[in-house]
């Protein structure tokens, strides 16, 4: 599913070495937390997986695409196998909940019929039934993030990647979102969640990959802060 070998990443603009010597393997159906302090390289890993930035060194493969050799016009195909979620939701304010989700299907060429079958199903799955006609501004943060999750799910990706999906939410909403992601994982989608929230991570017994200073420093089932940050 995801395979990173000896990956090194440097941002040319600042010369920052964001990752060095990273090895990471995620298998089909797994649920993985990626944790680490600010600036440790978590978002950089996600950008590498979605093809937004290119590694300087090493091998990366995602859902069968070799990201060191992928052609730019093949990137959309890779991205259709991934559902990405961000801290700031990134919804289109002038569209309704329904339209925001349908938009993601439409722009990859889905038929009107497929859209009208799939969107209500996904909205129900994330618990937004009855909210279809609202605009993002008329929803709570937790509900907005559910719209974003529905949008990520709607094209049936093989993997969901979430970059601090609960960063803007209170603890109860955060837990609800995490439970939703767990449910999605149980339905068969691989999930990778970036977060700094210790309690949240430790509330689940999942695989936790810890990164610091661009290096992976632990990888196991024993929760956040099983290592010393300082």
């Amino acid at each position: 599913m995801v395979q990173m070998n000896d990956v090194r990443m440097v941002y040319d603009s600042s010369g920052t070495e964001a990752l060095n010597d990273v090895d990471l393997e995620i298998n089909e159906g797994e649920f993985v937390f990626l944790v680490g302090p600010s600036g440790s390289g978590k978002t950089t890993i996600i950008k590498l997986l979605t093809g937004e930035v290119q590694a300087k060194q090493g091998e990366i493969s995602v859902n069968g695409f070799d990201l060191r050799r992928i052609k730019r016009r093949k990137l959309p195909q890779l991205r259709r196998t991934l559902g990405v979620i961000f801290q700031d939701f990134r919804l289109i304010d002038k569209m309704t909940v329904y339209e925001n989700v349908a938009f993601a299907m439409r722009v990859v060429g889905a038929s009107g019929r497929a859209i009208s079958e799939r969107v209500p199903y996904v909205l129900e799955l994330v618990g937004l039934k009855g909210r279809e006609k609202r605009h993002p501004k008329e929803l709570s943060g937790g509900e907005q993030q559910r719209v974003a999750i529905a949008r990520a799910l709607v094209n049936s990706p093989r993997m969901i990647i979430a970059d601090e999906p609960t960063g803007n939410l209170d603890p109860v909403r955060s837990l609800e979102i995490m439970l939703l992601l767990e449910k999605i994982n149980e339905l068969g989608t691989t999930v990778l969640v970036v977060t700094h929230e210790k309690e949240l991570v430790n509330a689940f017994s999942k695989r936790v990959v810890a990164i610091d200073g661009g290096h992976i420093i632990s990888d196991g089932m024993d929760g956040y802060y099983s290592y010393e940050i300082e």
């Binding site: 016009r73 990137l75 959309p76 991205r79 991934l82 990134r90 993601a104 722009v107 060429g109």
Partner: peptide, 11 residues
């Protein structure tokens, strides 16, 4: 958003 969900450049 279109790029993120995998819309082609032409589209």
């Amino acid at each position: 958003i279109m790029k993120m969900v995998g819309a082609s450049n032409g589209f």
